[in-house]
């Protein structure tokens, strides 16, 4: 039950993108096509879970015992940067087309605040390891849900007639606002 609550809360109620505003850069940047959105989701999901696991272990087994909590931000970002490098190298070997598609956005996962944000949130919430990994995974799922549904809508937006000044970013933001409003309907589920 407790675990189910973590999942529902992370995917729907406190959606990482639409209500916590993490990972907005890739949410707006790579969502023009469903295809790239799916790829980006996969990459973020992989990095998010892996980095939460790594930072959690780092925090609990090194920083906290040594009283070095103040190095949290700096060590987390380095761990994440190293992980992203590894994912990039792996992807280049395993799936060159996907690597081509995601292009410049892969290195940008390092500066995707969703990854660092969830790593820090996991520490702040006082989770155990299993809960933490589940928490990270469900946030990644929430990211994917928001990202893919948003990109689906944006594909349709291309054929809509929109006032010239609203074209591009403004209408996308308003669309995101409407999507976020829809997700507000999930609030209160945990109560």
């Amino acid at each position: 039950m407790e675990y189910l609550l973590i999942v529902i809360s992370a995917v729907f109620v406190n959606n990482i993108v639409l209500s916590q505003f993490l990972g907005i850069c890739s949410f707006l940047g790579v969502s023009k096509k469903v295809e790239t959105a799916v790829g980006m989701t996969g990459a973020v999901m992989f990095v998010l879970v892996l980095s939460t696991l790594a930072t959690y272990l780092l925090m609990k087994s090194v920083l906290e015992p040594l009283g070095l909590e103040y190095l949290r931000t700096i060590s987390f970002i380095l761990v994440i940067a190293a992980l992203v490098q590894m994912v990039e190298i792996a992807l280049k070997k395993v799936s060159p087309p996907l690597y081509q598609a995601l292009g410049i956005y892969l290195p940008l996962i390092t500066t995707n605040c969703a990854v660092l944000g969830v790593a820090i949130l996991t520490i702040q919430k006082d989770f155990n390891l299993l809960q933490g990994v589940l928490f990270a995974f469900s946030h990644a799922l929430g990211f994917g849900l928001a990202m893919i549904s948003f990109s689906g809508m944006r594909e349709h937006l291309e054929y809509a007639e929109i006032p010239a000044r609203m074209k591009g970013v403004p209408i996308s933001l308003i669309l995101a606002g409407l999507l976020s409003m829809a997700f507000m309907g999930f609030a209160g589920i945990g109560a």
């Binding site: 406190n14 209160g188 109560a191």
Partner: peptide, 13 residues
């Protein structure tokens, strides 16, 4: 006595 209390049953958290 002052007690710092918490309820998990809020609308969002």
């Amino acid at each position: 006595m002052a007690v710092k209390s918490v309820s998990p049953r809020g609308y969002s958290g």
